[in-house]
Design a protein around this nucleic acid. Structure first.
Lengths: 211, 211
DNA sequence: TATTTATGTTGACACTGTAAACATTTAGTA
DNA sequence: TACTAAATGTTTACAGTGTCAACATAAATA
């Protein structure tokens, strides 16, 4: 066991990602992450000023990975138009990343990191990810100007981001017997959407782009 | 100063709401809330099993208030159809509540409370709020069946919830000069949407309902 | 080789959520 | 009304947290 780790910074990020995804950002401690990396409690402070800044690195990594999974679908090596199916696939890739990396997504978009401007890498990664989202729309449909692309992109992004949020809600609500009818069932509705995700997305995304 | 407070439970919820909205749920402590209510550190434990359960009460209160602000728009005393403007106003009421009670909204929809089933009042309030959202759509347009209402409602809810999320993001991103063009500007797009919120909502909600 | 810098450890501090033991007030019953 | 049980408050204590200061060692540089 050598005194200097050699790769501690990236190892800490890796451990933080793992633990965060497993337990949620609010259930993990800097000490726990340090232990996972087999270093002393305060070793992380040689690489990260605060816990927040380590989580910022986790978030940045998340944005990069999310962007990759979108880019893979729309095939960055080309510049031609993409089909509607490909567009939807890209949106599904967003959802898929968000849901299978739920706790990291929370760090990316939640209140843990108060201001991205304090973390240039994160700020960068977030803007880049938005770029890919916008690019997928650009490659799908011809619009008047950049502003119009931004408007559609924000609408679609909001919709996707909202679906991710509702997916979390679903897991917190109960299966209430639907007999009495005094309550409506958002859960059933959410599950129905998930069980028919492709047509659900097809109609919604199309409507938003043309709105 | 009497030994028994008399109204400590509701007073704690009130203090928690205030402090939470001011500093965010992750920056407030049970001890701080107790101090705000002028009781000892552990007094809250006579009314709430854990910090989570106090925050659950905060969230429940939030759902009730949010529902009220929607109900006020669609006027529960009547049952007739509502205009498109009224529908949009109801959606704007949702956004308005979410944004002016940002930190409480975070408690309502974030990961703080893991399972609503542990907090019947909260579970109740959340379902009730969904009811009002759905009702506003029911009063706006005639659809085939309840399932169809649920589908539209989920779409619109996702969209609204997503917009709230993006509004948070906007505050974290930088004003980057748009000259070089190497990045796209989600911030500008988000601000543009906010500056023209009514037409933005009009087109989006309409598109989603008809999708 | 000598010295500065980077990177690690140990120990300490104030703060957190929460449990246990104890005190006081209120409610309920004889 | 007197006595007891329950509800509601306080004090004390504990383990876990983020972070700082002081110290130790390895690596880089002169």
């Amino acid at each position: 066991m050598k005194y200097h780790h050699g790769n501690l910074r990236s190892e800490l990020i890796r451990c933080a990602c793992t633990l965060c995804e497993e337990h949620g950002h609010d259930k993990i401690s800097l000490r726990g992450i340090a232990k996972e990396a087999n270093v002393s409690q305060t070793a992380p402070y040689r690489h990260f000023e605060t816990k927040e800044s380590l989580l910022a690195a986790v978030a940045a990594h998340g944005f990069v990975e999310m962007q990759k999974s979108i880019d893979k679908i729309i095939d960055l090596s080309k510049t031609n138009k993409i089909s509607k199916k490909t567009l939807i696939d890209a949106m599904l890739a967003y959802l898929d990343f968000a849901i299978s990396n739920n706790n990291i997504y929370e760090v990316m978009f939640g209140t843990v990191i108060k201001d991205f401007r304090n973390f240039p890498d994160l700020h960068n990664a977030a803007l880049e990810a938005y770029s890919s989202l916008k690019l997928s729309i650009k490659r799908y449909i011809k619009l008047k100007n950049d502003q119009e692309y931004d408007e559609k992109c924000v609408k679609i992004w909001a919709f996707l981001h909202g679906l991710v949020g509702l997916n979390k809600i679903e897991q917190k609500l109960e299966d209430v017997p639907t007999t009495d009818g005094s309550y409506d069932m958002p859960i059933d509705a959410l599950r129905a959407a998930k069980n028919n995700l492709v047509p659900f997305m097809n109609s919604s995304i199309d409507a938003l782009i043309k709105s």
